[in-house]
């Protein structure tokens, strides 16, 4: 089962408001490693056609690994508002 299908099994309550924002300028200019691309267990980070880093915040498991792994403060990351985000049924 691929990662998108796995995330499809989880319960998400998706907010209109995004809880992760990438500072694309910092990301492009300073960061060579882009750890977020491979550390994220939900594989939510992707480089788009323009070469910019993007994140599909809707599938976020809220572990914070991308935030901890980013040395350049390129992520504005907070928990989704109350009532939103992943809701584990088993955990």
């Amino acid at each position: 089962m691929n990662i998108e299908a796995k995330l499809g099994l989880d319960v998400f309550k998706i907010d209109k408001e995004r809880h992760i924002t990438i500072d694309v300028e910092v990301c492009n200019r300073v960061c060579t490693d882009k750890a977020c691309l491979y550390v994220c267990p939900a594989h939510l980070y992707e480089i788009d056609d323009q070469g910019n880093n993007t994140v599909n915040f809707e599938g976020c498991l809220e572990c914070g690994t991308c935030l901890i792994s980013c040395d350049h403060q390129a992520l504005d990351w907070h928990y989704p508002r109350g009532e939103y985000g992943v809701q584990y049924r088993m955990g």
Partner: peptide, 9 residues
């Protein structure tokens, strides 16, 4: 049967 995928720091 896979029923949930989760992650945490």
């Amino acid at each position: 049967t896979l029923v949930e995928y989760s992650a945490h720091a």
